[in-house]
Simulated assay, not measured.
Amino acid sequence: MLHMVAKLHYVEEMAQVDIARRLKLSTATVSRMLQKARSLGIVKIEVMDLVAPNEVAEELAELLGLKGVAVAETVSPGMVGALAAPLADLLKEAGFASGSVVGIGWGRAIREVISAGLPRLGGVTVVPLNGGLQQSAAHFQINEFVRQAAEQMGGEPRFLHAPYVSSPELRAAFLADSGVNDTVSLWDKLDCAIVGVGLPHPINPPEASAATASEKALTEAVGDVIRHYFDHDGKTVSWEGEERMIAASREQLGRARLSIAVAASPEKAAGLIGAVRSGMVNAIVTDTATAQAIISMLMPSRG
């Protein structure tokens, strides 16, 4: 049925209301089926880029002073896994190998690139960059991301069985646990961090962020990296709860040889700029459309 609906709409150019009438469905059902057909890869919409990804990558690196950048052809919504290949190239070029500590964040982009596959590096230690949430959503399962990433890289996983935020007393108790401390101590030894960049809460669906009321009130924030929020200039935007987080600090992320933000959405252009300016990110893996949106923000006369 999905294939039929997709073919009627995209090949025969039939309007959704006419498809609904022919198949005795509601237009809302037809719309959902078309969205599902795209997410499953039954339908692929390609927009040809006007510039080569490597040209955009060079300009992006120069404008933001990045240590690493990889740009793929523009990806379709829900197909962020296409960034796995350029991410793999960046990791291999950096020469991470036995003894390197690789930190993994959470979020949809991180989930997608890990699902698509990371390169075999051999002997690396893979560690979560923050504690977990009591949420069933797939993009919050950070220990599972670590397990998969370590398996793909041929490394050793270290898990963190602690909440990402709790009371001051519970935080202290968790950090006093030897198992938790062994993992958390690796944040001072990060060679690489792979993180997503969150959207501002006014345009981010609640189910995508599971944000607290304090976080949702951060109207000046353009994004976050593992719940460390910042404005367009990279300045810290504090929230009630940040000091109670069990997560790698801004400084620990900034000291990593390569701290890579993975994102593909022009909506995240401001967030990516802020993440780099904050010092938490020094490398970007993205697509051409997002890269061009970043360049347009940095050089408005170009737009």
Results as ranks from 00 to 15, higher is better:
residue 138 A to S: 07
residue 168 P to Y: 13
residue 156 E to S: 12
residue 140 F to A: 01
residue 150 A to N: 08
residue 123 G to V: 01
residue 159 F to L: 13
residue 166 S to P: 06
residue 115 S to D: 13
residue 111 R to M: 15
residue 150 A to T: 06
residue 164 Y to Q: 14
residue 158 R to F: 03
residue 128 P to S: 14
residue 170 L to M: 13
residue 143 N to H: 10
residue 107 G to K: 04
residue 153 M to G: 03
residue 145 F to S: 00
residue 121 L to F: 07
residue 130 N to A: 14
residue 149 A to R: 02
residue 170 L to I: 08
residue 129 L to M: 11
residue 116 A to S: 11
residue 170 L to C: 08
residue 168 P to W: 13
residue 160 L to T: 11
residue 135 Q to Y: 05
residue 114 I to H: 09
residue 107 G to H: 09
residue 173 A to G: 08
residue 143 N to Q: 10
residue 145 F to E: 01
residue 104 I to L: 02
residue 125 T to A: 12
residue 161 H to S: 14
residue 111 R to Q: 15
residue 131 G to R: 00
residue 158 R to D: 02
residue 141 Q to F: 00
residue 169 E to T: 12
residue 159 F to P: 02
residue 147 R to W: 09
residue 166 S to V: 15
residue 159 F to E: 11
residue 111 R to V: 01
residue 172 A to M: 08
residue 134 Q to D: 13
residue 120 R to F: 14
residue 126 V to D: 07
residue 129 L to K: 08
residue 127 V to A: 07
residue 124 V to Y: 04
residue 120 R to M: 04
residue 167 S to E: 07
residue 135 Q to N: 05
residue 172 A to T: 12
residue 124 V to M: 02
residue 134 Q to R: 13
residue 171 R to H: 09
residue 154 G to Q: 01
residue 158 R to E: 00
residue 114 I to N: 06
residue 143 N to Y: 02
residue 163 P to C: 13
residue 122 G to W: 06
residue 169 E to Y: 05
residue 137 A to E: 13
residue 108 R to K: 10
residue 149 A to N: 00
residue 163 P to H: 12
residue 143 N to T: 14
residue 158 R to V: 05
residue 167 S to T: 15
residue 138 A to R: 06
residue 143 N to C: 14
residue 122 G to P: 06
residue 134 Q to K: 09
residue 121 L to M: 12
residue 153 M to A: 06
residue 108 R to T: 11
residue 161 H to F: 12
residue 132 G to V: 00
residue 140 F to W: 01
residue 114 I to M: 10
residue 118 L to I: 08
residue 144 E to Q: 14
residue 110 I to T: 03
residue 134 Q to M: 12
residue 122 G to R: 05
residue 129 L to V: 12
residue 163 P to V: 15
residue 141 Q to W: 01
residue 121 L to V: 04
residue 171 R to A: 09
residue 111 R to E: 13
residue 147 R to L: 10
residue 151 E to N: 05
residue 166 S to F: 14
residue 112 E to H: 10
residue 115 S to A: 11
residue 134 Q to L: 15
residue 142 I to N: 02
residue 173 A to P: 05
residue 145 F to Y: 13
residue 115 S to G: 05
residue 134 Q to C: 05
residue 129 L to W: 13
residue 171 R to Y: 08
residue 137 A to V: 03
residue 144 E to G: 10
residue 153 M to H: 04
residue 117 G to H: 07
residue 145 F to R: 00
residue 158 R to I: 00
residue 164 Y to W: 15
residue 164 Y to K: 10
residue 170 L to T: 12
residue 135 Q to L: 09
residue 132 G to Y: 02
residue 160 L to K: 08
residue 166 S to C: 15
residue 150 A to K: 03
residue 169 E to P: 01
residue 107 G to Q: 08
residue 148 Q to F: 06
residue 152 Q to L: 02
residue 163 P to T: 15
residue 141 Q to L: 08
residue 135 Q to G: 00
residue 172 A to W: 07
residue 155 G to D: 15
residue 122 G to K: 04
residue 172 A to C: 07
residue 124 V to C: 11
residue 117 G to Q: 08
residue 157 P to T: 15
residue 172 A to G: 03
residue 106 W to N: 04
